[in-house]
Design a protein around this nucleic acid. Structure first.
Lengths: 151, 151
DNA sequence: AATGAAATAAGATGCAC
DNA sequence: GTGCATCTTATTTCATT
C-alpha cells in the first residue's frame, strides 16, 4: 500500500459516493488505474464495507451511553458466552475488550433514558457482573469513521 | 419516516454499495419509489454521508484508547477552545461531552503505544486538565455504524 | 504500473401513466 | 406507486508509454 492508495482511502472514507473518475482526479490518476486500486483494496480487505451513516437523533436513537464493565473472575467459556450475548444486542454499537481496571467497554445507543434502563436490566440479567458503570453522553462533539491516512 | 424508510435505512447502513433496484427488492418497492425515498432521506439529512470503512490494522492504526477527561472549572470560552483543539486532532475519532464524573470521553486511534504517548503529551500540553484516564483496548469485539431501525 | 480510447454492461435518473 | 426511456457511470479490454 503506497501513498496513492492512502490518498484513495482518505477520499473514500470522506465520501464513498464519488465516481471513480472523480476520485482519480483528486489523487492524480486516470480512471482505469484508480479503479484497479480500489478493487485491490477491497479484495485485500483494506476497505471492509461501504455504508450509509444516519443521524441518530433523526431516527430516534439519540441517547449514547458508555458502559464500563468489570466481569470479575470467570472462565474462558463464560467470557466467550458473554461476548456472544452482548454482541447480539442491537443497542450495543461498540464493544471493546480492555486492559486494566475495566474489562469491557461498551458504547450503547438507545432512544431515551427509560429504554436505557430496560437495556441495563437485560444486560445484568444475562450475566453475573462485578461492576457496571454507565456514563451518559450529553453531546457528540466529534464522530468520524475516517482513520488518519498520513503517518 | 415510515416503516419502509426504516427498512431502506437498515439496508443502506449494512451495505451502501447495493443498487437501488436491489434495495427496492429487499424492502418491497420498485426502483423509482425506492430511489425517491433515498433522495428524500438524503435531502432531509437522515442519511448524512456514504463512506468506506477501513480495517484499522491494515492501515497501521490498530491501537484504540478510551480517554476519560475531567476538565475541572473552566469558562465557557475555555471549553469551546478546548473542543475546537481536540476536534482538530485526527487521532480523535470520537469526542463526547458527558454528564457525571467524567466531562469528556474520547476514543483515540494511534499506530502504537509510543505514538499514544506523543498524542497524550500533545493533549495535556494544549489544555490544563484536572484528570485524564487512558484505557487501552485489547480487542474490538463489535463495531458497527448501524443504528437499530426497529423500535 | 500508468495512460487514453473505446466498447459493453449496469445502474441512476427522469418522464409518462 | 409502475413501467419505460435515457443518461451516466462502472467495468473490461487493448494498444501504448
Amino acid at each position: 500500500m503506497d501513498a496513492t492508495d492512502r490518498k484513495i482511502l482518505a477520499v473514500l472514507q470522506a465520501d464513498a459516493s464519488l465516481s471513480v473518475a472523480e476520485i482519480g482526479n483528486r489523487v492524480g490518476l486516470s480512471t482505469t488505474p484508480c479503479w484497479k486500486r480500489i478493487q485491490r483494496l477491497e479484495a485485500d480487505g483494506v476497505i471492509t464495507q461501504r455504508v450509509a451513516l444516519v443521524d441518530p437523533e433523526k431516527v430516534g436513537w439519540g441517547v449514547t451511553v458508555f458502559v464500563a464493565i468489570e466481569t470479575g473472575d470467570h472462565s474462558g467459556e463464560w467470557l466467550e458466552n458473554f461476548a456472544t450475548l452482548v454482541s447480539a444486542m442491537p443497542e450495543v454499537v461498540e464493544f471493546w475488550r480492555m486492559s486494566g481496571d475495566v474489562d469491557y467497554m461498551l458504547r450503547v445507543v438507545v432512544p431515551d433514558i427509560k429504554s436505557y434502563d430496560a437495556f441495563y436490566r437485560k444486560l445484568i440479567a444475562g450475566a453475573k457482573l462485578k461492576n457496571v458503570t454507565s456514563r451518559f453522553a450529553m453531546e457528540r462533539v466529534k464522530f468520524t469513521t475516517a482513520l488518519p491516512m498520513t503517518a
